[in-house]
Simulated assay, not measured.
Amino acid sequence: MKSGIVWVVGLLFWANAVLAQADPAALAVGSKAPSFSAKDQHGRTVSLEQLQAKGPVIVIFYRGYWCPFCNRQLKQLQDSLPLLKKRNAQVVAISPESAIYVNNTIDKTEASFPILSDVDNSIMQRYKVLYDVDANTVSRLKAIGVDLNAVNASNDAVLPVPAVYIINQKGIITYAFFDSNYRNRPSVKTLLEKL
């Protein structure tokens, strides 16, 4: 009987540890940024290393063209691009949405910086921002015309936590914004201060 209880407790502890590892969590400031490479809205391959060669990189993870908070954030970054470029900052946005929907994002935000479609969710996984969307949220989104399985390149009902990282030219994360409340985003002023 005791061994059965110990076994169950051990199994619960193990399951809890595995599930906890799957939860999104911010990468630490001071840690090495995971490398990435993907196609942008023009079909060109863009890599973190290419961007780093020009200056610090602001990496934005956004949910999709249908998210007004994401669109507002990307539009503010586009409007402030001259200020960011004065500090040699490179801006790149990453989303699970497929290329056709990336074009919708550009139409809404006028973004001229690279927007990458994370077609297999691998960038979001490496940056630990990816999470599975619960069935209730999937249903609510479908009710407003957003089918994540159709919109996302991977055909999975997943989203990123809307995170922002600043990565220096040595590949080190110097700033991390990570908030599971999708309404919260760092201001351009904050990003300029952190560059």
Rank of each mutant, 00 (worst) to 15 (best):
Q90A: 10
I58G: 06
A89Q: 07
V6D: 05
S37K: 11
N16K: 12
K194S: 11
K2I: 13
P56H: 04
L12P: 01
S95L: 05
Q41V: 02
I106R: 01
G4M: 09
F178A: 07
D107M: 03
W7I: 07
S3L: 07
V59C: 03
L12K: 00
F13R: 04
K75I: 08
P82R: 04
A143L: 12
W66H: 12
S117I: 09
V158P: 10
V188F: 01
A111W: 03
L84W: 00
A163V: 13
L27Y: 11
K75S: 15
S112T: 15
L27R: 12
I58T: 09
K54S: 11
A93E: 11
Q78Y: 10
S98I: 13
Q41T: 00
L159H: 14
C67D: 08
K128P: 01
G64I: 03
K194N: 07
A150H: 13
T137K: 10
N168Y: 04
V91Y: 06
R72Y: 12
W66L: 13
S95F: 03
V133C: 14
V92I: 06
G43Q: 06
N136W: 13
A163I: 13
A157K: 15
S180C: 03
V146A: 04
L81Q: 12
K85V: 07
S3H: 04
S95H: 09
V59Y: 02
D132L: 09
K75W: 12
F36W: 04
D79L: 04
I144C: 08
R44W: 05
F177K: 02
Q90C: 06
I115N: 06
P24D: 10
I106Y: 00
P162W: 05
T174V: 14
I144N: 05
R185H: 13
F69L: 05
A28Y: 02
A89V: 08
P34V: 04
Q125L: 14
T190Y: 06
R126G: 02
N103G: 03
V119G: 06
V57K: 01
W14R: 10
N136M: 14
V8L: 14
L83E: 13
P186S: 05
L130K: 14
P96A: 15
V6Q: 06
P160Y: 11
L130P: 06
A163H: 14
Q78R: 10
A17D: 08
Q169V: 09
A15H: 08
L192Y: 02
F69H: 10
R87W: 02
P56V: 02
A153K: 08
Y165R: 15
S80F: 03
L19F: 01
E193A: 10
N168P: 04
A89R: 03
L191R: 06
P56S: 05
M1T: 12
S31I: 12
W66P: 10
V158T: 15
I100C: 11
S47A: 05
Q90Y: 06
V29R: 05
T45I: 09
T105N: 00
S95I: 04
L48D: 00
P24L: 13
A150Y: 13
V59D: 02
A150M: 14
P114D: 07
N103T: 07
K128N: 03
N155P: 09
Y65V: 01
G30S: 07
S31V: 12
L141P: 03
R126L: 00
T174E: 14
I166G: 05
G43W: 06
V29M: 05
N104H: 15
Q90T: 04
G4L: 14
W7F: 08
W14C: 15
W66Y: 15
G30D: 07
